[in-house]
Design a protein around this nucleic acid. Structure first.
Length: 432
RNA sequence: GGAGGGGUGGCAGAGUGGUCGAAUGCAGCGGUCUUGAAAACCGCCGGGGUUUAACGACUCCCGUGGGUUCGAAUCCCACCCCCUCCGCCA
């Protein structure tokens, strides 16, 4: 959520920054509403103050032996005025506050100044590449053909569609094991080498958590909501439950940074992406992800984003998968992000790099929505902290990348060396 | 699913209609004392908002939302959460 004080004192700069991502902020409307709010606050608070002192006076009179009716009669004028106006004015002020809240909750995070200009992914800026895409001396097949052709366990979209329809996958045998091994490798790497604490969280969350990270109120159609009396949603990413661990908290300065790594399934309706990536397991309603989440002091978040991105890259380096890192342009940023580095892995079948991780600095945007704060020793006051997260990595897409990059002419797949200890030394997934 | 108990400041824990945003203890912060530390003693010490250059002033918040009342932490209703016992269960 935007900082309402910053909006009052520096609205034009925020409006201009938002314009870079193609969002028009109606400053005039905000200022009008905020002005009404001020009037309503002053009036309702004044009335409340009068009621308070009148009540207090009645109390004093009653205690000095005067009857309640008599005491009320002595402040009758104030009581009448209160009776006529107070409820109405308080309700008015409340309604305006709610309107402002709704307005602010719908506005995305302004991009940082360093974010490149541009309105679509075409304007993203590549900032580095790692690894050399392999040259194949045979016709490469995509991960669907490779996966479906494996012996001793394979990729089975027919079975998945029988169970759940489109955009789901079934994996069996060695392939399922490799999928599980990837999760294990990632968790081990981040906990033992990068200083993250592993955390297990619910896969169903309530609306407050989703508002906190920014999925609600604007993007409900991207979520799966479960039937039943309680308002619960399947998590679209572990970011939601993990970041909201800090909701409503005031953390001590020495408790920061907090670093969590969390493996969960993720559930996305993919509304609005019909026809995109319909083949294979690039875009699924359900996929596994290992997520990195950090809560940091505001002066550390820029550096923390660089580090977190490197932590995600380390997984691809361990697996020797070629990738590049892209600095997202203003128009391609997610709703809550102020800056994002996408990591894209090389997919030989598409002869292109595809997103496998998205690492973002949210600054205090999410923290303000969920009231996640730290106590700044310099001011002694609670202040919003900064949140950062990124995939480390999307497991399904990592598996896709391995199937494609490690495929052999005979249809088998070599198991990356780093993964072998997690697969009891298995070196190859054989072809049928 | 049945029966009962309970949600108050970082924690513990008083408060059952009137200067209560709230006793007390612990923790924390500052100070006195001390070579230093501990102990002792003194002081400070919840959060949001409005207003102010600032000091300050005002207002809201005692699980959440309604209600009763001149006045609600305290009474009433609904919901949520936690605990204990019984039943069921991965």
């Amino acid at each position: 959520m935007l900082d309402i004080r910053a909006l009052r004192s520096n609205g034009a700069a925020i409006r201009d920054a938002l314009a870079r991502r193609g969002v028009e902020l109606d400053l005039q409307a905000f200022e009008t509403l905020d002005g009404e709010r001020k009037q309503a606050d002053i009036r309702s608070q004044e009335l409340q103050a009068r009621r308070k002192s009148a009540s207090r006076e009645i109390g004093n009179l009653v205690q000095s032996g005067i009857s309640v009716d008599e005491a009320k009669a002595r402040v009758a004028e104030t009581l009448k005025e209160i009776d006529e106006q107070l409820d109405q004015e308080v309700a008015r002020a409340q309604a305006i506050h709610q309107q402002i809240e709704e307005m602010l909750m719908g506005v995305p995070n302004p991009p940082q100044d360093v974010v490149p200009d541009g309105l679509s992914e075409d304007d993203n800026v590549e900032i580095r590449r790692w690894g050399e895409p392999r040259s194949f001396e045979f016709d490469v097949r995509d991960h669907v053909d490779v996966g479906e052709g494996l012996a001793g366990g394979h990729l089975d979209f027919d079975a998945a569609s029988k169970l759940s329809g489109a955009r789901f996958a079934v994996m069996t045998g060695g392939l399922a094991r490799m999928h599980r091994a990837l999760v294990d490798l990632m968790l081990d790497l981040h906990t033992s080498s990068h200083g993250y604490q592993e955390i297990y969280v619910p896969y169903l969350v309530g609306p407050d958590a989703l508002r906190g990270t920014g999925q609600l109120p604007k993007f409900e159609e991207d979520l799966f909501r479960i039937a039943g009396e309680r308002e619960l949603y399947l998590i679209p990413t572990a970011e939601v439950p993990v970041t909201n661990m800090a909701a409503g908290e005031i953390l001590d300065a020495d408790a920061l940074p907090r670093r969590f790594v969390c493996h969960t399934p993720c559930f996305r309706s993919e509304a609005g992406s019909h026809g995109r990536d319909t083949r294979g397991m690039i875009r699924q309603h359900q996929f596994e992800k290992v997520e990195l989440v950090q809560m940091v002091r505001p002066d550390q978040s820029t550096q923390a984003l660089e580090e977190l991105t490197a932590h995600a890259e380390a997984v691809l380096q361990a697996l020797a998968l070629p990738y590049r890192v892209v600095d997202l342009c203003a128009g391609d940023l997610g709703f809550s992000a102020s800056r994002t580095f996408d990591i894209e892995v090389w997919l030989p079948s598409q002869q292109t790099y595809r997103e496998i991780s998205s690492c973002s600095n949210f600054l205090d945007f999410q923290a303000r929505r969920m009231q996640a704060r730290w106590r700044n020793p310099e001011t002694g006051k609670p202040e919003p902290l900064h949140t950062i997260n990124g995939s480390g990595l999307a497991v399904g897409r990592t598996l896709v990348a391995i199937l494609e990059n490690y495929q052999n002419a005979d249809g088998s797949v070599t198991v990356p060396e780093a993964l072998r200890p997690y697969m009891r030394g298995l070196e190859t997934l054989e072809a049928r």
